[in-house]
Design a protein around this nucleic acid. Structure first.
Lengths: 230, 230
DNA sequence: GCACAACCGGGAGCATAGTTCCGCTTATAG
DNA sequence: CTATAAGCGGAACTATGCTCCCGGTTGTGC
């Protein structure tokens, strides 16, 4: 499958690649998509050429980083699935994802502006979806989650929470506040029925495929502008 | 006060300026911040030169558009304030803002990525803040809104909702779903107390000022993220 | 109707950021 | 130890998009 058999790749090369990946992850986490290749190279202690040799394009690099993050999330989903208390499994998973998003600004941005999952992360993505479907279904069976919510609804809400979390930045207390509000809204005791029907991942995909065309990977370049409706 | 008295500005010039503003608003709404000046010019039926003469820079143009949007929001806040039912006033205002954000992708994006308020919209912003504070306080007095929420908390949640709404795109039903979830979470009947204290606008400002340039320097703080309510 | 200057269009110029290329360095095999 | 080529750095190249400018057009006052 790999060319590794014929040529094991030089040791220092492999090390550098790893350092680039780490530097990229760190910078993407704290600065978002607008980091420059040169910065990443500098942080990794290599030249830009090295970065570009390992990752033919900036997008490829970002995709690789994101794929790693997806794997991490999947792992958290697995942990949650192992929890015998379905309600707790669900809330803790949601909390972990929100926390994760807050720490990794890129992810939040990605989920915000675009939608394609990158690279060969397709497999991971599918696994993640199944895990989420399972967590949702079990939480609903256990009466810990309102029944009119679908797994993809959750994905959308994740995006929203992650967004608020990103704004809250380092303040984990604020993050918890908003997470709690949403979780309260997801409890089954609520009188207000949701309009429409629970959203599945297929519908979400269809919806996104349609609504996109404006989604670019490396979005706005501008640094500053406006504040909210405060 | 203005120089308008002495020099009425040529009629066609004024008309063109207006058309540019409208084109910009439309394109920003549907495509976000990454629209190009040239596109705007084309849509307005003028040359790029005309755009740049009226608005010295792209940012200035966007700021102007945003200022207009803020005014619109303020108007909606006023309408809500006129409602004698404090609870209904609150929910309808929130719904309007979410809807507004969904229709104007820029606003959502702006709220997402940046924070500085542009232009001389400062006055409008202040008025908007006071209106929101009033709406929140009255809703809480009326027992329609949980007491441990501050007006700035709301601003943060707005951002989250707006984000989810932007993802939902044109689908207003989906928008309604997520809005309902959050509104349910904001009801006062909830058992889960929110951590921290209600967020005021001053704290929000401070937080934002800090968190912006000082990028979230988040190492791996503890392994266990947020805990589910109970 | 005429003169003046405000306004217009769109191409040239400039800044930014990603990608490519090439001569030098250095790990690795024999 | 030497030969070889993988890997390295960073300058040059390229592409994109905002801003400025100039020659022509057109509204406006007389």
């Amino acid at each position: 499958m790999t060319g590794a058999v014929t040529r094991p790749m030089r040791a220092d090369g492999r090390r550098n690649r790893q350092r680039v990946l780490e530097a990229a992850a760190a910078l993407l986490a704290e600065r978002g998509l607008k980091v420059q290749i040169e910065e990443i190279a500098q942080r990794a202690g290599v030249g830009v050429g090295t970065v570009c040799r390992n990752f033919s394009t900036k997008e490829a690099l970002i995709d690789t980083v994101l794929a790693g993050m997806c794997e991490e999330m999947l792992e958290q989903a697995r942990v949650a699935q192992a929890d015998p208390d379905a309600g707790h499994a669900f809330t803790s998973f949601v909390a972990n994802v929100a926390d994760f998003q807050a720490r990794h600004r890129v992810l939040a941005e990605e989920m915000a502006t675009t939608v394609d999952m990158p690279t060969g992360a397709v497999k991971i993505k599918r696994a993640l979806r199944h895990a989420v479907e399972d967590l949702v279904a079990r939480a609903q069976d256990a009466g810990a989650l309102r029944a009119d919510i679908g797994p993809a609804d959750l994905a959308m809400l994740f995006a929203g929470i992650g967004h608020a979390a990103a704004l809250a930045g380092v303040d984990s207390v604020l993050r918890q506040r908003y997470l709690t509000v949403v979780l309260d809204g997801l409890r089954p005791i609520h009188p207000t029925p949701l309009p429409g029907i629970p959203l599945g991942f297929e519908e979400l995909d269809r919806l996104r495929a349609r609504g996109r065309r404006t989604a670019a990977r490396v979005g706005g370049h501008r640094g500053d502008a406006l504040e909210g409706p405060t």
